[in-house]
């Protein structure tokens, strides 16, 4: 996982670079929670651009980071969610809670 922090925007991006299963998600979650607590971002984005495989561990990872980010007043978003990943997130019904965004640009208001 690569971590990118944009201080002016209080934006934290986790670029996942590995397959997401029970094994890798435990490692990722520790690092991600550490970074969220360190920067207390307003916005946390999981970038799945490089994720080829994900099982249900991905659901737990995302929901868990949603909770961590919320506890510091931040929100969580996802981007570059491929069809396989989307199917799994939809099955768990979390897309209403954690939206998929097209880019890191701030959403235009109005």
């Amino acid at each position: 996982m690569n971590v990118k922090h944009f201080m002016e925007d209080r934006l934290l991006v986790f670029e996942i670079t590995e397959d997401l299963d029970h094994h890798s998600s435990e490692i990722i979650r520790r690092r991600a929670d550490y970074e969220i607590q360190r920067f207390m971002p307003k916005r946390v984005v999981f970038d799945f651009n490089r994720v080829v495989f994900m099982d249900s561990a991905g659901i737990g990872l995302v929901i868990g980071r949603y909770k961590t980010a919320s506890s510091f007043g931040g929100k969580l978003e996802m981007m570059h969610v491929n069809e396989n990943l989307r199917r799994i997130f939809e099955m768990a019904g979390i897309l209403k809670m954690i939206p998929i965004v097209e880019s890191l640009e701030k959403e235009k208001i109005g």
Partner: peptide
């Protein structure tokens, strides 16, 4: 352990 309970459903 942050298990989602979706294993069998998947």
């Amino acid at each position: 352990l942050e298990r989602s309970g979706m294993g069998f459903t998947i």
